[in-house]
Design a protein around this nucleic acid. Sequence first.
DNA 1: GCTTTAGACGTAT
DNA 2: ATACGTCTAAAGC
Length: 186
Amino acid sequence: MTYFIYIYGGIQISNEPIISTYNKGNLHFAVAVKDKKIIKTILPKSSKKKAINDISDEYLSFKISNKYQNFAEDVCNAYFGNSISFKDKFDYSSVNNEFQKEVLQEVAEIPYGETKTYKQIAEAIDSKAYRAVGTAIGKNPLPIIIPCHRVIKSDLSIGGFFGGTEMKKEILENEGVCIVNGKIQR
DNA sequence: GCTTTAGACGTAT
DNA sequence: ATACGTCTAAAGC
């Protein structure tokens, strides 16, 4: 990833993202913001340091500031089951893989408290690549905001998750999804 | 219910 | 060309 720095009349306008954090108890959230849009989120970490490390790893340079703490707080609240609209607050235009973008757009449409299967996502984009859907979702740059936790297996079991199945289950239950013996009830 | 197996596809190397 | 993946369906126990 390359960032260009432009100098206009002595004022430096850089393209680097601003990273803000927010925590609730021992869960630390972070967002990376560029042009007032969230371009990356992470699943919560056990310390602020880990959160910052995790979210910044792909950036050559970045700023840490509390400027967008409210965005990080929104992500935290969403994690804990609040229905929050991130419409127009995030941006995944940097996802330059068409397949992945189609998958993410589809996932972004899943309403709060509802689930879709990997197969349904694949069918929605006219593909049979169920596994590739899983792979693409695994690279979701905006977990929580793009609700990849709402994508489950066709047998209605939870399925994999970057942050572990337990975390996926927890987020779903926070949203009011009922899970009995590892199966989504719907 | 469980495990194994083959299948189908997109991506990274 | 090869290997892998937040998968699926079918077959066997």
